[in-house]
Simulated scan of single mutants.
Amino acid sequence: MKIQNDYYGEVEYEQNDLLTIPGGFWGFSDLKYYLPVCISEDDGSVLLLQSTEQPEIAFVVINPAFLCEDYSPVLSAEELSCLGVTEEGELSYYALCVIRDNYLENTVNMKCPLAINPLTREGRQVILENPDFGYRHKISSFPNIITSDNLQNGSLAHADTATEKK
């Protein structure tokens, strides 16, 4: 299959490359299937999740462990069950980013990450109880500030749910 991407042009993918989010993202509950595309060729910590149902809709997400090494979400038993796991460590996490023209104003939602079972490629957006995590953390406030340089040179940490550009 093929999809048109604003950043990379036409991208080929297989059905098993897709992430399924049965409940969708909040505000986009009707969109369930996303193609994860690495923003940097050698890295999977920053992804573009492009809807295959409405290709003009895409979300930039980041592995929150890159920003906060001790990021350790605690999910409810129901959330773990819905994702087909018994503990949080079996999941991959991605936080949604709001991208601004000035990258120092970019924010990330650490409170409501996307939790993904990498074996089933199924995910769910969850709300964490931890009061330390907020909805609008400035990315520039983290020690590992994302700049256009490290996005281009692949110096971000690796995550395992991304689809390489084909």
Score class of each variant (00 low, 15 high):
82 C>M: 11
72 S>C: 13
141 S>H: 14
145 I>M: 14
33 Y>N: 13
141 S>C: 04
17 D>H: 15
122 E>D: 02
40 S>Q: 13
94 Y>S: 03
127 I>E: 07
162 A>T: 00
120 T>F: 02
130 N>W: 03
115 A>L: 05
73 P>R: 11
26 W>L: 14
159 A>D: 01
105 E>G: 02
1 M>V: 03
66 F>M: 09
100 R>Y: 08
15 Q>G: 00
40 S>W: 01
80 L>V: 03
120 T>G: 07
141 S>F: 06
70 D>A: 10
110 M>K: 02
102 N>W: 01
63 N>E: 09
155 S>L: 11
133 F>M: 11
73 P>N: 08
34 Y>M: 03
123 G>D: 04
64 P>S: 10
18 L>K: 08
26 W>T: 13
131 P>C: 15
19 L>F: 07
90 E>D: 11
129 E>V: 09
156 L>I: 11
12 E>W: 00
45 S>R: 04
155 S>D: 12
122 E>H: 06
126 V>F: 02
137 H>K: 08
43 D>A: 14
91 L>I: 07
131 P>H: 12
135 Y>D: 04
72 S>K: 14
145 I>K: 14
152 Q>E: 13
54 Q>H: 06
62 I>F: 05
117 N>T: 11
144 N>F: 05
153 N>Y: 07
65 A>G: 10
104 L>K: 15
90 E>V: 00
39 I>S: 00
125 Q>S: 06
158 H>I: 07
55 P>H: 05
60 V>P: 03
100 R>M: 14
46 V>H: 04
135 Y>N: 09
29 S>N: 15
94 Y>V: 00
144 N>T: 05
145 I>N: 04
154 G>N: 15
17 D>S: 13
26 W>F: 14
57 I>C: 03
163 T>H: 10
126 V>K: 01
158 H>C: 06
65 A>K: 14
139 I>F: 01
43 D>Q: 15
25 F>L: 09
146 I>S: 02
77 A>I: 02
20 T>H: 10
68 C>Y: 14
28 F>H: 04
69 E>W: 03
157 A>F: 06
140 S>F: 06
85 V>E: 02
145 I>D: 05
41 E>P: 09
126 V>S: 03
78 E>S: 14
138 K>D: 06
131 P>K: 15
4 Q>D: 09
73 P>C: 10
114 L>E: 03
71 Y>T: 02
54 Q>F: 07
65 A>P: 00
152 Q>A: 15
96 L>C: 10
36 P>T: 05
15 Q>I: 10
149 D>Y: 10
121 R>F: 06
33 Y>C: 01
25 F>W: 08
40 S>L: 01
39 I>P: 00
70 D>M: 11
69 E>R: 09
68 C>V: 04
48 L>K: 12
126 V>Y: 01
113 P>D: 05
